[in-house]
Design a protein around this nucleic acid. Sequence first.
DNA 1: TCCATCTATATGCGAACTGCACATAGAAGA
DNA 2: TCTTCTATGTGCAGTTCGCATATAGATGGA
Lengths: 133, 133
Amino acid sequence: MPGRRGWRGSGGSRRRINRFLEPCLLLLLHRGESYGYQLLENLERFGFSDSPADSSTIYRILRSLEDGEFVTSRWTEGDSGPARRVYSLTGRGDVYLKMWVKDLRETDRILHCFFSEYSSHMELHRADENGRN
Amino acid sequence: MPGRRGWRGSGGSRRRINRFLEPCLLLLLHRGESYGYQLLENLERFGFSDSPADSSTIYRILRSLEDGEFVTSRWTEGDSGPARRVYSLTGRGDVYLKMWVKDLRETDRILHCFFSEYSSHMELHRADENGRN
DNA sequence: TCCATCTATATGCGAACTGCACATAGAAGA
DNA sequence: TCTTCTATGTGCAGTTCGCATATAGATGGA
């Protein structure tokens, strides 16, 4: 039984893009080096209505990007607050971001295929219902 | 260590939409009742370039939709071939499809936020590089 | 008849992703 | 001192997904 939790109401939807935070983080890092906590705050730019993600997700994605050598990190003594792990994009990361963008454009295309199928079907469906009156 | 497999080349991308097959199946069922094997073939319409999904995924999604009472199923003795489990959409399923569409439009909006951020940044970035020459 | 192939549905397993809760710890201010 | 903010991280459990595999009726050719 798939958890009975997958069907949560209209809130907290899981109907999003797989690992979409990853390209967002890559893009933010393309602007210049940054660290987890700051990146988390800057994610608002991408139009997520509510909080984009749990901080643990951000930190884990950043680490996995480092595993893949798409970013590098170093510790900086903050002028205020605790030390920060500052990430910067590598050449590999730059290429990876481009790949992501290409894929997202393909995703966009598929999405619009769906919308077009939906609209045309619903139009026919409505016409069909009217015809029956 | 996240598997060292997440970074597969440009092939087999996991950069897609979460559970996107679900709304596609719902839409196909909105047209009329159908069964797994046929639905699998009809998924081509949605512009997936390569094979949209594994058949096991399709069957599992259909079962979970039934768990959620978004579809119902019955067995039919095929006029040819093995028996088929034929699914049809319920009223609840109809509402759920509408919810999906709303969510996908939101996803589309966020996607375009990303594209716009990307484009404007890349334009500045290029101008910056030219300026340095 | 036998056997390969097509149609059709389904399970098992492991890898990956994610959200929630929680741990840790330095810094700043009341 | 105590609380709060900044900052990074781990543990766990639920969910998804692709691959491999199982099952089995139907079909057609050798």
